[in-house]
Design a protein around this nucleic acid. Structure first.
Lengths: 338, 338
DNA sequence: ACGATTGACACAAACGATTGTTTGATTTGA
DNA sequence: TCAAATCAAACAATCGTTTGTGTCAATCGT
């Protein structure tokens, strides 16, 4: 395609290695001013741009990192992607985003693909249907950090949210308003955040001497349709919940659909607290109070950790960062009317 | 990192070139079964994965394409990205997404970065503040396709939407309902789709003998805040519009904010038609009828065109594909009450 | 004034693959 | 039976950089 180092060198009548050193501004470099000028002139004239592929091959560094997320359409993950992308740009890295569609095979393929493409590190929100490939990465000593989701059985870098706490607080908030029958609807049950939130949910009940009822808890695929079905079942219960915790943006939409159809008023008939991160939550048919995540921080922290691990040969200890959540009140909760 | 061709070759006691040929399954290849088996065994044993960087360097093909979009948080562009990503996966390409934040400099940087990283082609939704860099790509004869936005002054590959028509139809729809004062709020005025939509808007008015009023048209930055300001100005007009065409998702949110605050009812007090592509539009405070885009087709078509241009040395003619839009009625328009 | 330093660059070997060309061995054909 | 054809695999150059090591002249110190 374009001009190469050799072309530049030929035009400037020097050796390619000299051009390379001038370009990289190697330390303790002794090159005459005249030569430098000739080189820069040649570079301009030929509009030379270094071939990053060749550099990567030689340097064994691509200045590229991969982000593997289950759903590129989710505002939550996109927020993280954007933040991570910003950090990358600032530091001269290029980000490659891979969408696994919450599919374990695609995730494994993506990891292999990116690895073999020579990314320097990986940020992964794993599907969590299996974990052998994660173990592989650990064994290879390849730099990566898990986000949002975590495997208790492995020690890895991770940036996760305070899910247990946030759920505990949300439930406590509802209990304080007099609610006793509190529903919990979420996406896939095996996901770390869902597990943790459920733990927080149960702990809050326990601490307030409220019995846990299995029938108030629904997990499903993260689709509007499934959430619609789940929420309808909840409402159809003989003794339906007076409040619902909703785990996930898409799930929230499904629940809203039910609520509209059933003519329920929020928060008069039903209090809801969602987990979602988007300005859109304010514009929902009925605005939803949410437990929100500092998505920006997740991106920043994961880059920071990854950066350290990419640029150190010694076995750095793993970092596990827990990011706090915050509650955004949009008046979708009210006192239980008993 | 991992094992190389050489390692495999050594273990299998053959020459690296043999391993390479066996792996790529070169045509007319004569290799004894025994040797092949030894090679595959070695590959498995060493868990060999070819170094794509080295391949790219040698083959001058990276099987990578770049997508440059102004806003990765926009449901519209994410839809395109997802579709394009799917096409890429299907065809063994990796997609690198670059977010320009609607910033011209970042776009230029992104193009240079991706080019120098050796992507085989580019899909670009340009910021359209300048176009010299687009001309550069043309001169370099580098494969790329413009999406959503287009430069009338250059002939390039492009996949764009039928914006003039869609706006014409939307306005006609409103006129048919008896509306005469129809507002138009959009993001940046210099963007191709905005320009086209405005043309369609004006044509519809003209054809129905309705005078065009400058004060009914607002363009701004694509932010909730600006759209909020614009829509307030529209409503504060001595003779305010009875219907509004809203160009863009974020702009729609700003208008909705105004409408809620001012206590207007949709569609009783005000008819609105939005341009946005997302299931979310159904869940807005007031669902918005929209002109929607076949985002999936945009991804598919742009990949198809790009693929052809990447894999042909002869100067292929440029393709310009126009994708039709479709109207989704969510009852946000009603007869003008005069 | 003469060896030692240093300045300014050139040389050449990598990095890990691909591929046109050779080489030696085996088989074929007449 | 022996040259020609075919088979199976090795050799070596190359992609565009980077970087350790040479080299040769000019300058330095004493």
């Amino acid at each position: 395609m374009g001009a190469t180092l050799k072309d530049v060198a030929a035009l400037a009548k020097v050796h390619p290695s000299t051009v390379s050193r001038v370009l990289r501004n190697v330390e303790n470099l002794k090159i005459s001013k005249d030569t430098k000028e000739r080189i820069f002139k040649a570079i301009n004239e030929l509009n030379y741009q270094p071939d990053q592929t060749a550099r990567s091959l030689k340097l064994k560094k691509s200045h590229t990192i991969g982000l593997i997320i289950p759903n590129i359409a989710s505002p939550y993950f996109i927020g993280i992607a954007r933040s991570l992308d910003d950090e990358c740009s600032k530091n001269g890295y290029t980000l490659i985003i891979s969408d696994t569609h919450e599919n374990q095979e695609k995730e494994i393929k993506a990891i292999n693909d990116l690895y073999s493409r020579g990314v320097d590190g990986l940020v992964i929100a794993p599907v969590q249907d299996s974990d052998e490939h994660i173990k592989d990465l650990i064994n290879k000593n390849f730099p990566f950090v898990l986000i949002d989701r975590y495997f208790d059985k492995y020690e890895t870098n991770a940036v996760i949210c305070n899910d247990k706490n946030s759920a505990f607080n949300a439930v406590q908030h509802l209990i304080d308003l007099g609610h006793k029958r509190i529903g919990f609807i979420s996406g896939r049950a095996n996901l770390y955040p869902v597990v943790e939130r459920l733990v927080g949910y149960k702990e809050a009940l326990l601490q307030n001497n409220i019995e846990f009822h299995e029938e108030l808890v629904y997990s499903s695929t993260p689709t509007v349709e499934d959430a619609y079905v789940s929420s309808n079942k909840l409402i159809d219960l003989p003794d339906p919940p007076t409040a619902i915790i909703i785990s996930g943006t898409v799930i929230t939409l499904g629940v809203l659909k039910t609520i509209i159809e059933r003519g329920k008023l929020i928060p008069e008939d039903l209090s809801i607290i969602g987990y979602t991160d988007t300005i859109l939550a304010s514009y929902f048919i009925s605005p939803v109070s949410t437990v929100s995540h500092k998505v920006k921080e997740i991106g920043v922290e994961s880059f920071k950790i990854l950066y350290e691990h990419m640029n150190s040969t010694e076995g750095l200890p793993y970092s596990k960062v827990v990011i706090d959540t915050y509650f955004v009140d949009r008046n979708s909760t009210a006192k239980a009317n008993i």
